[in-house]
Design a protein around this nucleic acid. Structure first.
Length: 466
RNA sequence: GGAGAGAUGGCAGAGUGGUCGAAUGCACCGCACUCGAAAUGCGGCAUGGGGGCAACUUCAUCGGGGGUUCAAAUCCCUCUCUCUCCGCCA
């Protein structure tokens, strides 16, 4: 490794406030004991060239340095204590002799500490960009074409499917959301562009109210029927929080940052960041779990690299509202919680009467930190496609390790274990607005208000009919 | 924005350079006493890393990082956070 690169690596490493030791971040002990399994698992992931052999080579060097350093420190500690004894006994001659004896260890130790720092920085850099390993039932695939429709745990789609709204049919050619009459008047892309550039929108009047009502409806649903605790989190967060939920170090380009003193704060790309990090650097008691939190927040995404995609309408914006659900669980319950969270997200679409399907994301499409992800894709008749409106992921202990979030079992005298984390949108409000506009549009350009939203619209049954 | 005070184990709270990883109290766990409980007594009770099959041993950690020293909870620098007062402000 070039020395300049190494220098910067060490600097970045030592200046960062790390929540967890380098070896705990991604279980290097597990890799050591299961090298083949690691290589097999990581090879399913696109975008990672990590290999157990490379990682363990760094770790072997690290352990070798530590062993030699520890021996020197032990010697120094022993001699230092003897010096202390001599001083207490006023035996200056003996103390001076001992100090001469220990002198050479000083350089040896500081060199060893420097070496340790370098090798830990290397290991840290290598481990921090390894994606989570996925579950066996995640389908293989190169891109979204490899995703598999999911019909429930037993493959029967039993209850959920029965409550799903069938794909609607129209007696006229349904318009895209930004062409629907009321939206044409009340989705002001031009004004927003003057203020902020492309990928922003100003909603007005009844459409603005509808968007607000949607967010309120979702939040109320999760807090009253699904047992989630409402949280209003900070919308600006530190780098450490972003590291915890794995936006950093790899996906910095997707974020907006605000300068702050000599540092910076990021605008949250999703409430997953603040909600999940609520438990960072803490040891929960098992009785507190599962901890379920939800929030309605704006989300900010730079969308670097997606130039030209979805430029029309408000499908892909730099700013949008989203209701997020986060669960903190024990390792034993996280998979059940994943299914549960999926039904919580589905409930939103079912109550709104929106047609959708559930996809089990394949290895080529799943996110960096997830072990398994279900996407809810809502039907957009104006565009004649299914579009992602919610993503529900189980992360295992991947984020917990990055945050140092653990729990202690009641009674049992064992060391604290890492919690498991899950996150899911329930749902993206902006995209849900699109779905309502397209699915409930009438030929005259007005839009019917879904029953469950009418209380949030002052009883209005339709908007834009004037 | 200005001035000052702080941050020690699950909690409270001692400790200002030398057997301090850290007194004491509370909480918690085990045992004894009890028909049972309370009270009492005895013992245990941090995290991470290295070595070892293990018993065990060793290193690091007193908010984070860096430094001085043979030796740092204790001295210096810096960052973060908390509190008090002043100013400003939704």
């Amino acid at each position: 490794m070039a020395s300049q690169v190494r220098h910067e690596l060490v600097l970045a490493y030592t200046n960062q406030r790390r929540a967890v030791s380098v070896t705990a971040m991604f279980d290097i002990k597990w890799i050591r004991a299961n090298a083949d399994a690691f290589d097999a698992a990581i090879s399913r992931r696109k975008g990672s060239s990590a290999s157990a052999a490379d990682l363990l080579a760094i770790d072997d060097r690290r352990r070798d340095i530590i062993t030699r350093l520890n021996e020197a420190q032990e010697q120094r500690n022993t001699l230092s204590k003897q010096i202390g004894q001599a001083k207490i006994q006023k035996d200056e001659a003996k103390a001076t002799a001992l100090m001469a004896e220990v002198a050479w260890l000083k350089d040896f130790i500081s060199q060893g500490e420097a070496d340790e720092r370098i090798v830990e920085a290397e290991l840290y850099a290598a481990l921090s960009v390894i994606p989570n390993l996925v579950f066996d039932d995640v389908p293989d695939g190169a891109d979204e074409a490899g995703n598999a429709e999911y019909f429930g745990r037993n493959g029967t789609a039993a209850t959920a499917a029965l409550q799903r709204t069938p794909k609607p049919s129209f007696a006229f050619a349904p318009k895209k959301h930004y062409e629907v009459g009321v939206a044409v008047r009340e989705m002001d892309f031009e004004a927003a562009a003057k203020l902020s550039g492309s990928r922003f929108v100003a909603l007005k009047g009844q459409v603005a109210r509808l968007e607000r009502g949607l967010g309120q409806f979702m939040l109320d649903l999760h807090t009253t029927e699904h047992g989630y605790l409402e949280v209003q989190p900070p919308l600006l967060v530190r780098d450490e929080a972003l590291f915890g939920t794995n936006q950093l170090p790899k996906f910095e380009a997707d974020l907006f940052f605000a300068p702050h003193g000599d540092s910076r704060l990021a605008l949250i790309p999703t409430a997953e960041v603040p909600l999940t990090n609520m438990v960072r650097e803490s040891i929960l008691s098992e009785e507190e779990l599962p901890l379920r939190m939800t929030a309605l927040t704006p989300c900010f995404r730079s969308e670097a690299g997606s130039a030209g995609r979805d430029t029309r309408g408000m499908l892909r914006q730099h700013q949008f509202n989203k209701v997020e659900m986060v669960s903190i669980t024990t390792p034993e319950t996280s998979s059940d919680e994943h299914e549960r969270m999926l039904t919580c997200a589905e409930a939103v679409l079912q109550k709104l009467g929106l047609h959708y399907r559930v996809m089990n994301l394949c290895t080529g499409d799943i996110g960096f930190g997830a072990k398994k992800t279900y996407d809810l894709e809502v039907w957009l008749p104006g565009q004649n496609i299914y579009r992602e409106i919610s993503s529900v992921s189980v992360c295992g202990d991947f984020q917990a390790r990055r945050m140092d979030a653990r729990f202690r079992s009641a009674g049992e005298k064992q060391a604290p274990r890492f919690v498991h984390t899950l996150n899911g949108s329930g749902t993206a409000v902006g995209r849900c607005l699109i779905a309502v506009l397209e699915n409930y549009q009438q030929e005259d350009g007005s839009v019917l208000v879904p029953d469950v939203l009418q209380p949030y619209m002052g009883g209005l049954k339709s908007i834009g009919a004037n």
